[in-house]
């Protein structure tokens, strides 16, 4: 029974993921923004703000490009999840979600499928982003293992964001829920040390950033790329906790969608 259940979840997840990925890859209206937006952030932040690296007290060893690369990597991880939430909301608005609900013997497979698609989406974006960064001459001081850890952190961010967005999408079941998925994500990302290290922030933003969990994720990521890991364990614990928390949130969303028909 349990083995059968796993097989059912897997079949459904594979089907749902296949369609999302197919639509993502074949439709420029979906593909282009999710590739271009992170690139513009990267180009604009790393290129346009390069002088910030010379501010007194800015002591990140691997240069401003690498400093910003980590932010844009985690940001695109989060937004890959949010965009997938959009697709999910659209599906549940149009009734396609019902097709899934009907066919899926085990409905958790539906959320899993969207999550796989979100991860795929993020990987495509990261590939392009990383290639651009390397071509632009980004310094990478971290070891192979540390770089893997950086991407693993990004995977956790992606999973957490997808689960957050899925919970909203399944509750609102309309694309009107879009801002609700996007805005808090945006908020929490930008209320962190985006442009300069935490020490150089002052006033209210320093206060907020000090308690924002994204700060630890960013600092750990920047530690990995510069080969000087800090807060690594804390960051993974935060990423994992957020993922589990939002998975429960998404599960509640699934219940709500089931109850509403």
């Amino acid at each position: 029974m349990s083995e059968q259940r796993t097989a059912g979840v897997r079949a459904v997840a594979r089907g749902v993921a296949w369609r999302s990925i197919h639509n993502f890859l074949t439709n420029p209206a979906f593909l282009v923004p999710s590739l271009l937006f992170p690139l513009f952030f990267f180009v604009s932040f790393a290129g346009g703000l390069a002088a910030i690296g010379e501010v007194p007290g800015f002591d990140f060893p691997s240069g401003y490009t690498a400093f910003q690369f980590v932010f844009v990597l985690l940001q695109s991880a989060a937004f890959g999840g949010v965009f997938t939430g959009f697709a999910m909301a659209r599906d549940f608005e149009s009734g396609f979600g019902r097709r899934y609900m009907l066919a899926a013997s085990h409905r958790s497979g539906i959320v899993l499928g969207y999550a796989l698609a979100a991860l795929f989406r993020a990987f495509v974006t990261w590939t392009v982003l990383s290639a651009v960064a390397v071509v632009a001459g980004m310094e990478i001081a971290g070891s192979g293992g540390e770089i893997v850890a950086l991407y693993a952190l990004a995977v956790l961010v992606n999973v957490a964001a997808t689960m957050w967005a899925a919970g909203v999408a399944l509750r609102v079941r309309s694309i009107q829920g879009g801002p609700l998925m996007q805005f808090p994500t945006f908020l929490v990302l930008f209320l962190a040390p985006v442009y300069v290290p935490l020490d150089l922030l002052s006033g209210w933003i320093h206060t907020i950033a000090s308690i924002n969990p994204v700060t630890a994720l960013l600092e750990a990521g920047r530690g990995f790329i510069s080969g000087d890991p800090v807060l690594a364990a804390a960051a993974f614990a935060i990423g994992l906790t957020l993922s589990l928390l939002f998975a429960a949130w998404a599960r509640g969303g699934l219940r709500s969608a089931e109850a509403a028909g």
């Binding site: 097989a7 059912g8 079949a11 459904v12 594979r14 089907g15 749902v16 296949w18 369609r19 197919h22 097709r99 899934y100 066919a103 899926a104 013997s105």
Partner: peptide, 12 residues
């Protein structure tokens, strides 16, 4: 055809 493929896959 892609719809058919998806539906049959969903049903395992």
């Amino acid at each position: 055809r892609e719809h058919m493929r998806l539906q049959t896959a969903l049903h395992g």
